[in-house]
Write a protein that binds this DNA or RNA. Structure first.
Length: 269
DNA sequence: CCGACAACCTGTGAGC
DNA sequence: TGCTCACAGGTTGTCG
């Protein structure tokens, strides 16, 4: 379920580990989106300096060298106590001083665990990521500039990580509803005022989702993993046929760029 | 530049 | 109950 807010909530949950050393790395299944590199073993003994996020990537700064984590479609991280037996699809453990284990579970194995000795933003997967939607420089003007001259639909622009990093299918849909913009609208057709409204809607949607997930942070350590974290009161996503929460018209679903899109035909133009 | 499509995987829920 | 099918929150790469 991970889009930017879920990754950010996870990042915050890992912050208390900063300052501790990595005691061991266990890879039970290296076949993720890309093979888990054997160089991971070289992180044993390193101290965790910071936990950052770039788009949907988690960056564990180990003093120069970085671990790069991506949760893909179905990945999640949990902190468990050392000695906890691994369940199905729990592919990678990063054992931390203090009898804790950072455990990656990823049934579909679309996630990734990678590492780099250089600057993580230079890593090929991160080098071409676009603007952070929660960074101060992301505003209506920036969005308007990104959309100028683009013939693609606004929803596909929002989900293009090379332009805006971290927006996925759910939050793109929800933000477009909040801004009253039809997902199939040509990006270049949005006025500056429209872009300002949309940029605000994006930030508001992401912040609300982070807040909702953040309230369950306490459950992160030692939870059974099935706690309904990250619950979102979806206004359109996954609600085809159900009444719009604002006007009552039935929510519609259509396929756009291979992904399901949901919108209210009356509220979104 | 753009859209369409396939690929990587497994789990789940709907319908029969 | 058990089977089959459609579909799922991400990303990369190819083709026309």
């Amino acid at each position: 379920m991970p889009e930017l807010p879920e990754v950010e909530v996870t990042r915050r949950a890992l912050e208390p580990l900063v300052g501790r050393r990595i005691r061991a790395v266990v890879v039970r299944e290296p076949r993720l989106r890309w093979p888990v590199p054997p160089e991971l073993a070289g992180f044993v003994g390193r101290r965790l300096r910071a936990v950052r996020r770039r788009g949907k990537y988690l960056l564990l700064d180990c003093g120069g060298a970085h671990l790069i984590l991506h949760l893909g479609m179905s990945g999640s991280l949990r902190l468990v106590r050392a000695g906890t037996p691994a369940g199905p699809h729990e592919h990678v453990d990063i054992a931390i001083a203090g009898r804790l284990v950072l455990r990656l579970r990823d049934p579909r194995r679309f996630g990734a665990v990678l590492c780099t000795g250089g600057a993580p933003e230079m890593h090929p997967l991160l080098a071409h990521l676009g603007v952070e939607p929660l960074a101060p420089e992301f505003d209506g003007a920036r969005l308007h500039a990104l959309a100028r001259g683009r013939r693609i639909s606004i929803k596909q622009l929002l989900m293009d990580a090379r332009r805006i990093a971290g927006l996925g299918n759910i939050y793109a849909s929800e933000a477009l509803f909040l801004a009253g913009i039809h997902p199939a609208r040509r990006a270049s057709s949005l006025s500056a005022a429209c872009c300002a409204r949309l940029a605000r809607a994006i930030r508001r949607t992401l912040r609300a989702a982070i807040r909702a997930g953040g309230s369950t942070l306490r459950d992160f350590v030692g939870a059974d993993g099935t706690t309904g974290c990250f619950q979102l009161h979806a206004r359109v996503y996954g609600r085809a046929g159900e009444p719009c929460r604002r006007c009552g018209a039935p929510i519609r679903r259509f396929v756009q760029g291979q992904r399901a899109s949901y919108y209210c035909p009356r509220c979104q133009r």
